[in-house]
Design a protein around this nucleic acid. Structure first.
Lengths: 134, 134
DNA sequence: TATTGTTATACTCTATAACTATA
DNA sequence: TATAGTTATAGAGTATAACAATA
């Protein structure tokens, strides 16, 4: 009966990693949710704002300010969807793609330190299991 | 270079599990942070409020309202620390211990569903690795 | 002088409701 | 009538500073 709570374990691990990400993101002048948006866009899709918000697990009304900032910095572009002129399609600019790659490189370097004490099989299992929990 | 971000994976998994916890906690009339406090106290220690806040990773000023509610419900007791009369020692009452056990039973049953698709070794690795990340 | 618990205040984040333009 | 994007407002959550009692 000495079983720890999974939610607490996940939340503590997530908080630890995110706390370590915070200064890296700040150095790049990008908020956490802005980085999440850049990450999804870097995976290749050019979704509408609503679709982007849903795949981020974020609110469409809050995403607007995020995109305003990214657009003002020239990292993303918003263009009207030809097939539905109510919608606006979001895409990465070349600068946005470069920015995301630079940030992600820093983050992955940080993660390597966090994961240093894990064996290769433990790491592989972690990356295999986590997506299936979400 | 198609490596996912660990922070995002952990945050999504944590959010999913915590979202599933929310209705269970609400049914027991306990907030998430109140449950975290009950969990730490159930592990046997009777810390001072400040020590409890630190081990929760929570703010001491916000913990006060949490403890006020738990004390009003008769789930915890606050007594002055004999060795330092500024401090107040927090402990579980019998009702608090029973309450925590009942909530945790519900939560563990929910977690079993979440973990159902994982093999026994995957589960063991997950429980071994997560504490080392935090 | 420093620290524990407490309160009060300001700030950020989040959720909800309305508005426009299209469908 | 319903939906995508937008804006504004209210609410919850969080952080900071100050206070009384004790060290």
């Amino acid at each position: 009966m000495d079983r720890p709570d999974l939610g607490e374990l996940l939340a503590r691990a997530a908080r630890r990693v995110i706390d370590a990400e915070r200064p890296l993101l700040e150095a790049h002048g990008v908020s956490m949710w802005a980085y999440v948006a850049l990450s999804l866009l870097a995976r290749g899709s050019t979704p509408t704002q609503l679709a982007l918000a849903e795949s981020m697990g974020y609110d469409k009304t809050r995403l607007i300010k995020i995109l305003d900032g990214l657009e003002a910095d020239g990292l993303v572009a918003r263009e009207p969807d030809p097939s539905d002129r109510r919608a606006r399609v979001v895409s990465l600019t070349a600068a946005g793609r470069a920015k995301h790659a630079a940030i992600q490189a820093d983050i992955h370097a940080m993660e390597d330190e966090v994961l240093a004490s894990l064996s290769a099989t433990e790491r592989a299992t972690l990356y295999a299991v986590l997506p299936r929990l979400a």
